[in-house]
Measured scan of single mutants.
Amino acid sequence: MALNTPQITPTKKITVRAIGEELPRGDYQRCPQCDMLFSLPEINSHQSAYCPRCQAKIRDGRDWSLTRLAAMAFTMLLLMPFAWGEPLLHIWLLGIRIDANVMQGIWQMTKQGDAITGSMVFFCVIGAPLILVTSIAYLWFGNRLGMNLRPVLLMLERLKEWVMLDIYLVGIGVASIKVQDYAHIQAGVGLFSFVALVILTTVTLSHLNVEELWERFYPQRPATRRDEKLRVCLGCHFTGYPDQRGRCPRCHIPLRLRRRHSLQKCWAALLASIVLLLPANLLPISIIYLNGGRQEDTILSGIMSLASSNIAVAGIVFIASILVPFTKVIVMFTLLLSIHFKCQQGLRTRILLLRMVTWIGRWSMLDLFVISLTMSLINRDQILAFTMGPAAFYFGAAVILTILAVEWLDSRLLWDAHESGNARFDD
């Protein structure tokens, strides 16, 4: 018995066209964080690309023209004298008006014999932002004059995390709450300039795509075929072959399989920071003279006294001054041990922890910024005066060393310790 099946006739004509040209192939790229070699397709503007294995951002879609970056830099340069030299806060102490600005706080630190601690604050609040705007201006002028731009481009990517104007702005709020127990506070004209400078700096850093600047100024022929001998440069993120001198053909720094002496430098910085954190938390970090009496505060006791007036601000200072430094030390110690013992479990967790400490590390400088600003506000000789204690130097040095330890660690070593050939990683 035959089955009668109805015929289905399409209502619209289906047209099949042959592909007349070869589909576009992607360029081969190595991930600078996990060293995976993959094919990167062509990316349009405002599109980002991520590593298929570790999800690290390979290409950032946010990109401004150099002219727009230069305009932002010149605007920031105009704001800087007002943000640093004009009063941020006014207080009335014992019937006398006192003005506080950024430069005055750094000068008070240096004047009291601790120039190293003052230079830490100076670099993060004044030096690094000033280098940022002058570097962008150098790129703008240098591109037109045919100057060598490689050193500036190499420095810009590392400079971003040292620009800490946003953290200093939080420190202004913390210092205001600490001082309000002794005097009446009012915002100064410099505060508005400083807030504007923070906003412009944040926007500029978020749109400063150094890798795209490398592509514009020093374009290189990408690798179009897969080759395990391809290496990625950690300076400019170019994937290719080393030249005859073993250097990256684009930025001219040595092109090595792994960062040289990464573990040794990381261990040295980490152990030194552990040693410095002990006096930083045991010795007094601030000293207040009130009517001839002397009151010393460690980091913890200062947080407890701050909690009596504002528990939320005390929580912020606790996280930045105690929780973050010790968390960074514990995480980095764990990561280094996992590399030495070739741990194969929990790779995803370790990668996330490394990215976390990379982002939060700079916030530990908050305590030094609060001390710097408070020193310029309260300084009335023996009637009422505020000065920093010996722990300030140890704390600042420990924070900087932990930042350097994270920067010096080559994250690809975590993958080397893991089993080879993993296309995915999980716990």
Rank of each mutant, 00 (worst) to 15 (best):
S176P: 02
I371H: 00
A18K: 07
H261W: 06
R412H: 01
R59G: 07
L290P: 02
I8E: 06
L373R: 01
R97I: 13
G105L: 01
V170E: 02
L352P: 07
L255G: 09
E86N: 06
F194L: 13
S411V: 08
N209M: 11
S372E: 10
L145W: 08
E212C: 15
A280L: 10
G396Y: 01
S321H: 00
Y138L: 06
G389C: 01
L3W: 07
I91K: 00
Y241A: 12
L40K: 09
L282E: 10
R250D: 01
Q186M: 14
P41V: 07
A128Q: 01
I58T: 05
Q382W: 13
C51L: 00
V179K: 01
I400H: 09
L354D: 12
I58P: 01
N379R: 12
E161R: 04
M80P: 05
V357I: 10
K160Y: 09
L153Q: 12
E215I: 13
T9E: 06
F369V: 04
F393P: 09
S135L: 02
R150M: 06
W359Q: 10
S119A: 11
A83P: 05
I303S: 13
H207R: 08
T5A: 06
A280K: 04
I339G: 10
M365N: 09
P219R: 15
M375I: 04
N148Q: 06
T201W: 04
R97A: 03
A405F: 04
D63W: 15
K12G: 06
V121W: 05
N310G: 07
G61V: 09
L156D: 01
C233T: 00
E419P: 08
L159Q: 03
L257T: 13
G235D: 07
L353E: 05
I106C: 03
L404W: 07
T11D: 10
L384Y: 02
L373F: 02
F194V: 10
C248K: 00
R17P: 07
A2T: 08
R62D: 08
I311T: 14
L373G: 02
M1A: 00
A392F: 03
N281G: 05
I360T: 03
D35N: 08
H237F: 12
P279L: 14
V16E: 06
E42G: 06
Y218N: 08
C34E: 00
E296G: 11
L337R: 13
Y182K: 02
L23M: 07
F318I: 07
Y50T: 04
W267C: 15
W363S: 01
V133C: 08
M332Q: 05
Q244L: 12
D60N: 05
H46M: 08
P81Q: 08
C343A: 12
A269M: 04
S48A: 11
L40Q: 07
T358R: 09
G235F: 06
R144D: 04
V317A: 04
G173D: 01
W64K: 03
G246F: 13
F238S: 12
Q220R: 13
Q29V: 06
R59I: 04
S273M: 03
R412M: 01
A320R: 00
G293Q: 13
L263V: 11
V179T: 13
L347G: 14
F82N: 06
T204Q: 10
S305Y: 05
Y241R: 12
T11S: 07
V174L: 15
A312G: 13
P6C: 05
L255Q: 13
R260Y: 08
V174Q: 01
M80W: 07
R362S: 04
F74M: 08
G361W: 01
V331Y: 10
D227C: 14
Y394W: 08
L78D: 03
L270D: 10
Q55M: 07
I172E: 05
L154C: 03
L213S: 14
P249Y: 12
I14V: 07
P390V: 08
V152T: 11
I43W: 09
W408R: 03
D416F: 11
V210G: 15
F326Q: 09
E419D: 12
K178G: 00
S301C: 07
A49I: 06
L37T: 08
L230W: 13
L270S: 09
I98P: 01
G127L: 01
L271E: 04
W64I: 13
Q7K: 10
R68T: 02
V179D: 05
G85D: 07
W214P: 01
F393Q: 07
A137S: 06
N148S: 04
L384W: 02
A187V: 12
L191E: 07
A100I: 03
A100P: 09
P24N: 10
Q382T: 07
A115I: 01
C124K: 04
I116N: 15
V195S: 11
C251N: 00
F395V: 01
L366H: 01
M375L: 06
V313L: 15
P284V: 06
D181P: 00
L77E: 04
I378G: 00
C31K: 00
L153S: 09
W359G: 05
Y168V: 04
L159M: 03
I400R: 00
K265I: 03
D114S: 06
S65T: 06
D60W: 06
Q264S: 06
D367P: 00
